[in-house]
């Protein structure tokens, strides 16, 4: 049985697609068969972050409408062969997706893949609801910032009431908190909510903390998911996320600001 994981947040711009891409690559590098699905119909971006935008021929909606087979639409990642991407449609409207036809596609994918990662659009409209409906697990991507935390809580409510698991009275969706764009320095200065604060408010288990990092922008510029930048803090933090998703206990890193040496203190660094 494939694990269906939705990467969601409510608020836009918090790092859903960046995280989906990193997690997809990370799991595939561990030898799992992974498919990444972009649910943001009309605003496709996962292809760009994955660096395969020029290879999109058919998309999710083509598959649903029977205009292409799954195999025609799936793009095999050039770096990791066990990873495929199902791009969103750029032109069709989001009403193209409904529970029946999305369910069928996921069922079909479940026969081949171990992990189905659903990259949710922002908001709480139909597209976001469709991305979370079939999920077994949810990675709630949150920034340490008031509107993002509030929206995440809203999404937690949706996971508990509007998902397939909720409707059928099955075991609830397993929720994970992924805190992104974290700046330990600003936390220490009292300008940013801390990990503990956010965990306290949302009260769901912490999957990872991704530090604010310049390597994230560089990674999306290049179309190389940041987890491949093994030297970067963000890349290492995503690596830890993968290990935790696979059941390992890994200590959290990058939670305290780097202490400046006496020289950089004196001369500014």
């Amino acid at each position: 049985m494939a694990r269906i994981i939705v990467v969601t947040s409510g608020k836009g711009g918090v790092g859903k697609t960046t995280s989906s891409a990193a997690i997809g690559i990370g799991l595939a590098l561990k030898g799992h068969k992974v498919v990444l699905i972009d649910f943001d119909i009309g605003l496709r971006n996962l292809d760009l972050i994955m660096g395969c935008e020029r290879r999109v021929v058919y998309d999710f909606v083509n598959v649903i409408n029977g205009e292409a087979t799954l195999n025609q639409a799936l793009i095999k990642d050039k770096r990791v062969s066990s990873l495929s991407i199902l791009p969103a449609s750029q032109t069709r409207d989001k009403d193209a997706l409904n529970k029946e036809n999305v369910g069928k596609v996921l069922e079909e994918l479940g026969k081949t893949f171990d992990y189905i990662i659903c990259d949710s659009p922002a908001g709480i409209e139909a597209g976001a609801m469709m991305a979370l409906y079939f999920a077994d697990e949810a990675i709630v991507t949150t920034n340490p910032e008031v509107s993002s935390v509030r929206d995440s809580d809203r999404i937690l409510g949706m996971l508990a009431s509007r998902s397939r698991r909720a409707e059928l009275g099955l075991e609830p969706i397993k929720e994970h908190l992924l805190l992104t764009r974290y700046s330990p320095k600003r936390v220490e200065e009292g300008e940013m909510l801390s990990v503990e604060d956010v965990v306290d408010i949302l009260s769901i288990p912490l999957l990872g903390v991704i530090p604010e990092s310049q390597s994230v922008l560089k990674a999306s510029n290049a179309g190389e998911p940041v987890i491949l930048d093994v030297e970067s803090d963000a890349g290492k933090a995503y690596q830890d996320v993968i290990d935790r998703l696979l059941g390992e206990t890994v200590e959290f890193r990058f939670l305290v600001a780097e202490k400046k040496g006496i020289f950089s203190r004196m001369f500014g660094g």
Partner: peptide, 25 residues
């Protein structure tokens, strides 16, 4: 003084609004 600055204000406001919204939900 910085110890009671914006981050703790943010937490307090969030706790109240989130509790309120959970209730009505």
């Amino acid at each position: 003084e910085k110890q009671v600055t914006t981050a703790s204000k943010a937490k307090e406001r969030l706790q109240i609004i989130v509790a309120h919204e959970r209730n009505s939900r």
